[in-house]
Design a binder for these strands. Structure first.
Lengths: 142, 142
DNA sequence: TCCTCGATGTCAGGATCCTTACATCGTCAG
DNA sequence: CTGACGATGTAAGGATCCTGACATCGAGGA
């Protein structure tokens, strides 16, 4: 039973595609002084206003500790604020600032462009199919 | 022009799928005390025997500096050796040790299992199509 | 010959992610 | 009421990745 060539294995292709997309997005976001990690948190925050640090961590699929690292940079850059008082328990709501929202809009535009480049001339059916396949893969692993 | 829901955007799905696969593999490799980064280097080395550090970096799509970090761990674990003398220029060939090859075989088996889980009951046609789509995406970004 | 240039190795520093560990707060069973 | 438990925040340390910078080596042109 021979192994498929490394370059054809699903894990390799998946990693490669994600890496290429991430690299392209990182390059485009560099002028904004925004990393992909930071962008992910801003977007999660826009989708879930007032979420706590732990909630944002779950949403972005990282640990609370990792999220804390990124949140530090976002706070320094004045893109988000963290409430002093906990709303319930120890959870303190995080909020986008005005400049955070502006930065997110600018970043969204660039990232969407890159995604469009990646999909290229794929038809709507092909795009949907790709999304379905990826969704199935995620489902099979969780 | 409204934006697609975050969870349906291609970048999100791609990142999510890669993250899920990586997480699953990381968990399976933990008993072997091998990280996915280390596994990637071992496999690259198996595909390209005697490659230099810089070559391995290109193959695995990371910088020389990143590869150096990983190589340190592999050397400590006696899974690879680096020639003392440069073969040509400053390039020193890296080689798998016997235990490195054994570790790689064990890891390959586990990773292949996870990949199979991920693909689940996808047909051969669907798998090929997924691979083609991902390959197209990579091509569109490079 | 000499010198520039590309490739390689290396170091320093920073960003992001993880594991492990601990303290605090609310809730809920006993 | 009280103590266990889950969720949250925080801290320390390590692994992996990056950028920027520098030294060295081989090759090829002035």
């Amino acid at each position: 039973m021979s192994q498929a060539p490394t370059g054809d294995r699903p894990g390799y292709l998946l990693k490669r595609a994600q890496q290429a997309l991430n690299q392209a997005c990182t390059d485009r976001l560099r002028p904004l002084e925004l990393s992909m990690s930071q962008y992910a948190v801003l977007r999660a925050l826009d989708d879930h206003p007032g979420a706590s640090s732990a909630e944002l961590a779950r949403i972005t699929f990282v640990t609370r500790q990792s999220l804390r690292d990124v949140l530090g940079g976002l706070r320094s850059a004045e893109l988000v604020t963290v409430a002093e008082q906990a709303s319930t328990g120890r959870a303190r709501p995080v909020a986008l600032t005005t400049s955070g929202r502006a930065k997110l809009r600018a970043a969204e535009s660039l990232v969407t462009q890159v995604e469009e480049e990646m999909l290229g001339d794929l038809s709507a059916d092909q795009r949907r199919y790709l999304a379905d396949l990826l969704h199935t893969c995620v489902g099979n692993l969780t």
